[in-house]
Amino acid sequence: MRNQLLHGYLIHHRKYREKSHIVHLFTQEYGRVDGILRQTPPPQFQPIQIQASGKSELKNFSKLEIQQQPIFFHGDAFFCGFYLNEIILRLCPLEENLDLTFSQYALCLAELQHLAERNQDGQFLKQILRQFEHALLQDLGYPIDFNFDAHQNPISAARQYQFHLNEGFLVETKMTNSALTGELILSMHDYIPDREFDAQQLQCLTKLYRQMLTALLGERPLKSRQLWIQHRQIQN
C-alpha cells in the first residue's frame, strides 16, 4: 500500500515504544489491517478515516480523522461490542475484503445504541449477534446447507443432528445439549436474506453458531464472553 485511504474502525490496540501504538483496524476496503500509529489511537466503535503505507503486514498509519461524535456503550452494549471486536481480531484474515461482515458490523454498532430501550426480552440483542455471525461465517467461507445432511440425505424433522464444521449435519442417535432437532434446522427454509430471523430460527442459530465459532476459535476462550458472564452474574 502507498498512501491508501482507508475507512473503518479501531478493533484493538496496544502500546508500542514510547509514543506509538500497534493498532488493528477493520476497514471497508481491505478488511482487517494492522499497523503502527504514532499518535493516540481513536475510540473504538467510531468510524475513522486513515492513510496506510507499507509492503509488510504491519503498515504505517497516518492522517487519522474521526468521522463523527464519540459513541459510548454501557452494560450489555459494551460487552456486545467487545465480543464483535474480539471475533474480528481472532477470525478475520489480514487484508481480505469482507463486505458482508463490514456492513453488518456498522449496522450492529448503530443498533447497539438503542439496546437499552429495545432489549426488554433479550431478543433484540440475540438478533444483532446472530445477524453479525451469519454474515461473518458466510464471508469466511462457511455457508450452511440446511436442506441436506453430510451424506446428502434430506434433513428429517423427526431426527436429531450434530453439526461438524468440515462435514455438515450428521444424524445423532442420542439427544445431547449440542444436538439440533431437524425441525429447528428446517426452520431456516423460511429465512429471507436481509430480513430478521424469527424466534425458531434464532434458537437454531444461537446453538449452531456457538458450536461453529468455538471450533474456529480453538481452545483459547473468548475474553469478552467470560467478562459478559461475570457481568450478568453480578447483575443477578
Results as ranks from 00 to 15, higher is better:
Asp149Trp: 03
Pro143Asp: 08
Ala150Tyr: 02
Gln123Thr: 09
Ala157Gln: 02
Lys174Arg: 06
Phe78Ile: 09
Thr181Tyr: 02
Gln127Ile: 12
Pro143Trp: 12
Gln138His: 12
Asp121Asn: 14
Gln152Asp: 13
Ala77His: 11
Asn119Gln: 04
Leu112Gln: 00
Leu98Ala: 11
Cys108Pro: 00
Asp139Pro: 04
Tyr105Glu: 01
Ala110Cys: 00
Tyr105Arg: 12
Leu84Tyr: 11
Arg159Pro: 01
Glu86Gln: 10
Ile88Pro: 03
Glu167Val: 03
Phe132Ala: 12
Pro93Arg: 11
Thr101Asn: 02
Gly168Thr: 01
Thr181Asn: 01
Leu140Ser: 06
Cys92Ser: 07
Asn85Gly: 15
Asn97Trp: 04
Gly81Ser: 15
Cys80Thr: 09
Asn85Lys: 13
Asn153Cys: 08
Gln113Pro: 00
Leu129Tyr: 07
Ala135Leu: 05
Gln162Ser: 10
Leu125Gln: 06
Thr101Leu: 03
Leu140Pro: 01
Gln113Lys: 13
Cys108Trp: 00
Leu137Ser: 01
Ala116Met: 04
Leu94Asn: 13
Asp76Lys: 15
Gln138Ala: 10
Arg118Glu: 07
Asn177Cys: 09
Leu180Pro: 00
Phe78Trp: 08
Leu89Val: 03
Thr101Val: 11
Val171Gly: 01
Asp76Met: 14
Tyr105Lys: 13
His134Lys: 10
Gln120Phe: 07
Asn147Val: 06
Phe169Ala: 09
Gln104Ala: 04
Tyr142His: 15
Arg130Trp: 07
Leu115Phe: 08
Leu125Tyr: 06
Tyr142Asn: 07
Ala135Lys: 04
Lys126Arg: 11
Gln127Val: 12
